[in-house]
Design a protein around this nucleic acid. Structure first.
Lengths: 100, 100
DNA sequence: ATAGAGTAGTTTATATTATAAACCAAATTA
DNA sequence: TAATTTGGTTTATAATATAAACTACTCTAT
């Protein structure tokens, strides 16, 4: 009846990050922070979880002497997002009676 | 850019309950338990939260000597659900560039 | 050269949430 | 009348999310 919702994506911030990365392909830590309105600490933790899950690739560099964290969505991340969106349909369209 | 997701509904079980109640109008505790696959304890807690939020109405009766808990979606619940689904669109359709 | 403020994050501690286990009250069955 | 079952609730614990504090630098002004 109701599909499982990937717990990695069922988090407002992580979902926003993945959603954002799907549209922009690559983004800096601070850019994501601004767009999502997250605090740096929270974002740091959630990016770590997305990385651990293999949903994003994180590369750390230096730019103009400052540390720079770049994030990219992975194939697995795109697939998980699509699957998550698909699962949500089962909650949003309650009367799609496909024999439970 | 990303809309807030109502924390009351941003829970797999509570969302399933509300989704279910929107389609059936009224349901018994055990029916909801079966349909959602939740444990009784968890369901009891989450129904309490939905009730406290005013999203559902809970009436307790007796039927054939046994206690019977009936749940109905409220107007507020329907509205919150619609608002939640609407908010989700901002995550699912990342390129709907409506000036952040 | 060094104190103060700013950048870019990470770590840690705390609050919140979800879940499971234990419990309660009554009814049914053996 | 002693299990067992029904229909839950409460409580304890595990998992998650978030904020606050901290690290490690860099830049600027004195």
């Amino acid at each position: 009846m109701f599909k499982e919702l990937d717990p990695i994506l069922h988090s407002q911030l992580r979902l926003a990050v993945v959603s954002l990365l799907i549209s922009v392909k690559e983004a800096e830590f601070t850019f994501i922070k601004e767009k999502t309105g997250a605090t740096a600490g929270n974002l740091s933790v959630q990016l770590g979880k997305l990385k651990d899950a293999g949903y994003i690739d994180v590369t750390k560099q230096f730019k103009d002497n400052y540390p720079l964290t770049l994030c990219k969505i992975s194939k697995k991340g795109v697939e998980a997002f699509e699957e998550y969106v698909n699962a949500l349909q089962s909650y949003m369209k309650p009367n799609t009676d496909s024999k439970d």
